[in-house]
Each structure stands twice: as C-alpha cells, then as structure tokens.
Simulated assay, not measured.
Amino acid sequence: MKRLVLGVVVAIGAAVPAIGDAVAADCPAASADWAAPGPFGATVEPGGSAHSIYRPARLGDCGAHPVIIWGNGTGASPSTYDGLLRHLASHGFVVAAANTAWAGSGKEMLAGLDYLATRNGTPGDVYAGNVDLTRVGATGHSQGGGGAIAAGADARVDTTVPIEPGPQGEVRALHGPTFFLAGEKDWIVSPRTLVYPRYLKATHIPAVYGELAGASHFTPVGSGGGFRGPITAWFRSTLLGDDRAKAFFSGPNCGYCGDPRWSRFERDAG
C-alpha cells in the first residue's frame, strides 16, 4: 500500500533491515548530519595498479571496517569523485575504487574486493584483520552505477547503491537491500524512464528509490553534492547497523519521508 505525502510517494510500513550488529555504537561518534565529515581522518593510497583505496587513516579503532567497492562513470576516474570517496572513508569504510573508466561489467569493482581480501589475509599487513569482508556494499555513478548493480549480484555483496545508473547489470539478480538514486534534472540518465523502472523491478528485495530535487547527471561528481548524505546514511545503516541512520529510511515517519530534498522518495519492503 502506498500514499502520497507532500508530493512524495512512500510505501507504508516498509523497513530497511540493517545487516550489521549495531557496531556503530563501538566506533567514534559521528554526527547525524550524514553529509558532514565522519570521525576518522581519511587517506588514499594505491591498491596495486587497478584500484585506489580510500580508508580511515588509522585502521581498527572500531574493529574491522566494512568495505565499499566503487565504479566510476564513463571516462572518469576515482579522482573525479575524490571528495565523496574520502567522505565515506571518514565514516569508517574502506573504499576500493576501480581505476577504470569502464566499470559497467562490475568485474573491476569486484576485483577490488579480491585485492582487499588478499591484504586482509596477509599477516603483518596494515589491513590484516582490519577489513570486514562480511559487510560489503557496492556503489558507483552512471556506468559505474550499472556496474554496481552487476557487482551486487555477487554473493559477497550485501547491499547496493546505484547512483544515476547506466543500463548494465540485472536488477533481478540483486539479493540485498538496494537504494536507487536518481537526479530530477538528469537529462542523460532519465529518472522516469531509466532509473525508476529499475527500482520497480526490485520486488524481491528491500528497495528504496530517491530522486534528488534539482540534481543533474553531474551532481555526484566531486564531493557527491546532495547525494553524499543519503549515501552515507544508507551504508551506515546497512553495514554499520547505525540505528540513527536506519531511522532515515525506516518506519512510517522515516527521516527522508516528506523531506523536500527529494522530488520523489519511495520505499518497498521487498
């Protein structure tokens, strides 16, 4: 059952389950303004030749860190989204960003997970024991958003956030909660014909659709624009078990329900 609230479509009673075990309570405190920097200093380093790793400068302050794998838009590189990726690292995530302008297959993104698994299992490595391979999210922009959907079919990926995604990947192959993000003024990846229909196909999983008011296709570039806070809240909810973040998506009066930042916001319990 759905209703219209202040021009925003929401599904009544839908909830997005947290994958984590509320580990956020054991981490340094973060502001509930999810667009604000997190409690960790962030650093970036090469992940071999194929990836750039954005991570907390000091690992292990709250146990092993969840992983986010990232895919760039066509023609772009991780540096194109440097502010957004550093922001996610500041909130306690280890981000493996594929150094490719063609991330649509999802394979390059998943290779970042393989890289971190090797480092995590190498005694004496700075990553050893500090990467939680049981808490993995996939996200990316444009072609990389399609790549995130493709990567999200992998059994190791728990949750997916396609940002203005291309046509790559099969939505029905996803198996974990998914947050589809679109831009109201995106003339390249139309929210109504290319993103919202993909959300509607996700009837087998908990799914959320968020269309950012006034956003263009290039709003996510740099620091993520208005997408930065919602992306962070989603991953803090699903991968860190942060109840404050979960409240933005869950319950009849969820924090994003009726929020004017969205031109459309819809939830489906799956």
Rank of each mutant, 00 (worst) to 15 (best):
V94H: 01
V94P: 00
A96Q: 01
T100S: 15
A101C: 06
A101S: 15
A103F: 08
S105I: 09
E108T: 11
M109C: 04
L110K: 02
L110A: 09
A111F: 05
A111I: 04
L113C: 06
D114E: 11
Y115R: 10
R119T: 07
R119H: 08
N120D: 14
G121C: 10
G121F: 13
T122Y: 12
V126F: 13
Y127T: 06
Y127G: 07
Y127N: 05
R135N: 09
V136Q: 01
A138C: 10
H141T: 06
H141A: 07
S142E: 05
A148H: 02
I149F: 03
A150M: 09
A150H: 04
A150S: 13
A151E: 02
G152V: 07
D154E: 08
D158H: 07
T159S: 15
P162T: 01
P167R: 15
P167M: 14
Q168S: 14
R172Y: 05
A173F: 05
L174N: 03
H175C: 05
P177M: 10
P177C: 14
F179M: 13
F180A: 07
F180T: 04
F180C: 08
L181T: 12
A182P: 00
K185W: 14
I188G: 00
I188F: 08
P191H: 03
P191I: 09
L194C: 08
V195I: 15
Y196F: 10
A202E: 03
A202G: 06
T203G: 10
T203D: 09
T203I: 12
